[in-house]
Nucleic acid binder design. Structure first.
Lengths: 115, 115
DNA sequence: CTGTCGTACTACGTCTGTCGTGGTAACTAT
DNA sequence: ATAGTTACCACGACAGACGTAGTACGACAG
């Protein structure tokens, strides 16, 4: 199974993470597993990448954190919720994706062109 | 006209440049103009990005440089030619693109899902 | 004959996102 | 007991992209 290099996915981690928050708040560990599942094991986000994305996006106002303390055993978990600015950012990034995809495909040679 | 951010294109500059060398050797200035033309002004590669990609890819054995000294006015120009390893790298990157595209599109919400 | 524009690079330093390493801590199954 | 899973964070390294600036030559306008 081929895997995706980080430089190739770079710039898309934000929208991947935000996608996971569109409907409900969630937290790091769960999001990382969902990304893996949804991508059918093709993309496994690194923990540090994920958590540093949280920090960055919260600083930028795209997500908000809150702590859930009502867990069994008195454990805490940091949840994230997408903000309106985050939704707008997500939407813009999706549009950018469409454009980028079109551009890149101009540079993908059709079978046979690469002799 | 929307423009493409560098993080989004990161990881694809290599294949964009190599695509330009598939048929014939070329040089920096020409390649940059061709990228602009081919992408219909949607992607304008920065000079420094281009030239540092040349250095990197030559180090990796994907391209070879040679100097054309037979230009009017005794001018010199550095040309680049793709190597067999470069062709293989290009091919592999194109495959990776296909996979990446599929993965990312799983995280692009369909109209209406983003309420 | 001076100045600007286009051609064709190169050097240097900065920034940002990703990732490797390693650590903490509590619960859960064997 | 201990290995595994859950859940997270700090620190530093790295690499690619980019901003700024500089060189140098030719063409062409005024």
């Amino acid at each position: 199974m081929a895997e995706i290099s980080s430089d190739v996915i770079r710039g898309y981690n934000d929208i991947i993470i935000l996608y996971m928050l569109l409907n409900d708040p969630s937290y790091g560990y769960e999001i990382s597993k969902e990304i893996r599942t949804l991508s059918e094991d093709k993309y496994i986000i690194k923990e540090t990448t994920l958590y540093s994305a949280f920090t960055r996006m919260e600083k930028n106002g795209f997500i908000e954190s809150f702590i859930n303390e009502d867990l069994a055993g008195g454990k805490k978990r940091t949840y994230y919720r997408i903000t309106p600015a985050g939704r707008e950012y997500y939407r813009a990034k999706c549009e950018e994706w469409t454009l980028t995809k079109e551009v890149i495909e101009k540079f993908i040679a059709k079978e046979g062109v690469v002799k």
